[in-house]
């Protein structure tokens, strides 16, 4: 029984990580219908840059900011000069992002090599605490992840529900042409949103590299998990990303604890079930 609760907690913390990663992915898709296959490699890039900054300055928070900012820049560049030219041609955009993902991943391998990196945490997040009731040690950084996911979720909700930019984004999701006709510079908005999505990926990378570790291949793994999370939750919906992340995180952890060899099957069972009965995702809206 004790194991059951701990695994639940593990699932929750892993879900937090998935949620932060998938948020950026779903944000970009929601507005632009671009399936950004370079999301994983942006995460890895942010993590490496965050690692360098933390090593240089010793400030963890600075690493997160640097990882986010640098990815935002790369994201803005991608949208402004490459993807923006093919707006509306989703298949071509997807193929381009796959190409970018492969090229960038090789550059990262060239620059940082094949070793495993771990970003050092600040003193107060290191080590573990004893959980009351369950009486087992649990790592502080994992508990912090839940808090971070909630902060990211709430900030995103505030941004989308309460700000001017949020209103424009929501309008754009509903009717892009109308928004353009009303005189909003859709190109600029696309660049901002893409940068935001990429920044979320970069920050998730730094957090991921601190809680677990990063190495070549992490990009593909996280691209896949982001895809599964948003397919289950519903493409383009932040709430859907949260629900999807929770389902996938719990399934992975219970799988690993009770049936380690076949754990990965549960994830895809959930995906197959959702695709069979609700192809738009649990909280997704069907295309008109």
């Amino acid at each position: 029984m004790k194991l059951f609760f701990i695994v639940f907690l593990n699932g929750l913390t892993l879900a937090s990580l998935y949620f932060i990663t998938a948020c950026g992915f779903t944000l970009i898709f929601g507005l632009m219908r671009t399936v950004n296959m370079a999301h994983g490699v942006l995460l890895l890039l942010g993590a490496y840059i965050g690692y360098e900054v933390v090593e240089m300055t010793g400030f963890w928070v600075l690493g997160i900011i640097a990882g986010g900012l640098s990815c935002a820049l790369v994201g803005a560049f991608l949208q402004a000069f490459i993807l923006g030219r093919y707006q509306g041609d989703e298949l071509r955009q997807t193929l381009i992002t796959i190409a970018i993902s492969i090229i960038l991943a090789d550059f990262l391998l060239w620059a940082w090599g094949g070793l495993t990196y771990q970003i050092s945490l600040p003193e107060m997040l290191q080590g573990g605490i004893r959980l009351p009731l369950l009486n087992v040690g649990y790592s502080v950084v994992r508990l912090t992840l839940i808090g971070m996911a909630i902060v990211v979720g709430v900030l995103l909700w505030l941004l989308i529900a309460k700000t001017k930019l949020g209103i424009i984004i929501r309008a754009g999701v509903d009717d892009r042409e109308m928004l353009q006709a009303l005189g909003f510079e859709i190109k600029k908005i696309f660049i901002i949103v893409f940068a935001m999505g990429a920044a979320l990926a970069g920050m998730a990378g730094v957090i991921f590299g601190s809680a677990l570790s990063i190495s070549p291949g992490t990009d593909i793994q996280f691209l896949l998990s982001s895809l599964v999370v948003v397919i289950v939750g519903g493409m383009g919906s932040v709430g859907g990303a949260a629900l999807g992340a929770l389902l996938i995180g719990l399934a992975e952890q219970y799988g690993l604890a009770y049936a380690p060899t076949y754990g990965v099957v549960f994830t895809f069972l959930i995906m197959v079930t959702v695709l069979a009965f609700r192809p738009q995702g649990i909280l997704g809206r069907a295309e008109q």
């Binding site: 701990i6 793994q221 952890q253 604890a257 380690p260």
Partner: peptide
């Protein structure tokens, strides 16, 4: 014996088992 897939990132549930 715990057999985990190659590339597993999150071992926490194995740790507690």
């Amino acid at each position: 014996k715990f057999w985990t897939p190659i590339g597993t990132k999150d071992y926490s549930s194995v740790v507690y088992s």
